[in-house]
Design a protein around this nucleic acid. Structure first.
Lengths: 239, 239
DNA sequence: GAGTGGTCTAGACCACCTT
DNA sequence: AGGTGGTCTAGACCACTCA
């Protein structure tokens, strides 16, 4: 009944993840080659490959035959098509434009502090953002980020945003989002949101509460989303 | 620019999947041991293990150290907690009771035929089902199954169902659901559904359109669900 | 052409389950 | 005690990328 140590490949995987999270290799940079890394840890190449395969499956690294192993970079494609699970009734995946219209640093509200596991009086960077598809407002988001991780956060207000937010998080704050948890409910549009989304008050909307997690599985973002589903729907696969 | 053959481990994986789908080993039965299977295919044990690991990750088989490799059985736990992604605001996963109140075989409707990739006039087994949590009706479902795969489908009507549907599909029709695709929208409760779910007409509800896929990735079920989200919410993880 | 990751093999040793 | 899957090693050969 003695506690078994974790398998070697799992310890190597954790060690490499920690080194990547610490910034030893920046996003887009190459890791040492397999023979070099294996020698460094004193393990066989096969065991190292098992650890690298796991990190690749989690999108922590990318491997290209003949080229090398690289720290994964956040991409617009992944942000838009993997983490933004919206499609038209025909199954097409629209590319929305985004406009932020509020940005402030303030104490976390109750739901935000709970979702981010923050102390009651911790500060967050809070923003609001509207997303449009074909010129029509379809998504309204209220986002909160732990101020300790996102010091000096800046975005242009009132104009179309260039980068996807998760790309911005990685480039400017070294925060890489690997997975998100979402909770969905259906609600009647409150007056203010209805006006923003250009629908009658009381229209049924999809309400999404999201928590995003980084490479070390820390809670790095809370997002409350209202989505018009008259022209869009939420698509997900369970396997 | 010649087409490369698939790697050996992928071909072995496909071959084993086909044999399991054909019923050569029933759900719950043991596969031959690794040395036996490897010898049968004339491959090394390592290559076989790679194929088996992939099938295990897809829940096609289960492997138990010291015991053997078994064809995965559909379980209530997986049906309830993996494929029924509903929780209370506190995060608890309720176990609903189910009552079917309609069962018939009829031509597929347009949406059903499309979702199941059936010919326009193909027949489906159609049923309706109400699910209750703590005695309150919270989920209303309309389910359609291809009649060719579910000949002689039977369920007791008007009383609490014993088995989860996906367990029933596997035990009685040899159909194993491995993954599902879902599309979600928010709608105002229509009169009939509102009455069944005991909410005022027009209440916002979550509408879920599901297609389920089996071991060979065939479309085996279409399900249209209406979910009350006043006391429940839909929970999903993206990674 | 040199170096990278991808595939496949062969075998040793171990932890675990069954009888 | 015997047999199972789990871990780890060592090495060969191949396909691919890039200078």
């Amino acid at each position: 009944m003695k506690a078994q140590p974790a398998p070697l490949y799992a310890r190597i995987e954790a060690a490499l993840r920690a080194r990547i999270a610490a910034g030893e290799w920046a996003p887009g940079a190459a890791l040492p080659t397999e023979p070099v890394l294996a020698a460094e840890y004193g393990i066989s190449q096969g065991t190292l490959r098992r650890a690298l395969a796991a990190l690749e499956a989690q999108h922590v690294i990318e491997r290209r035959q003949g080229a090398g192993t690289y720290v994964a970079e956040a991409t617009s494609a992944r942000a838009l098509f993997h983490f933004f699970r919206v499609e038209t009734p025909g199954g097409a995946r629209p590319v929305p434009t985004s406009i932020a219209h509020l940005l402030e640093t303030r104490p976390a509200r109750g739901a935000e502090a709970a979702a981010l596991s923050l102390a009651p009086r911790a500060r967050v960077v809070a923003m609001e953002r509207l997303r449009l598809v074909e010129g029509r407002p379809v998504v309204l988001e209220a986002i909160a980020l732990p101020a300790t991780l996102f010091a000096g956060f800046a975005l242009p207000l009132g104009q179309v945003l260039e980068d996807e937010l998760y790309v911005h998080y990685q480039r400017h704050h070294g925060v890489t989002v690997l997975r998100v948890e979402e909770r969905l409910t259906a609600i009647a549009a409150p007056a203010e949101a209805a006006a923003r989304l250009d629908v009658p008050e009381g229209t049924p909307l999809l309400a999404i509460s999201r928590v995003a997690f980084d490479v070390l599985d820390r809670r790095v973002e809370h997002r409350h989303t209202l989505l018009r589903t008259d022209a869009l729907r939420y698509a997900v696969e369970l396997r």
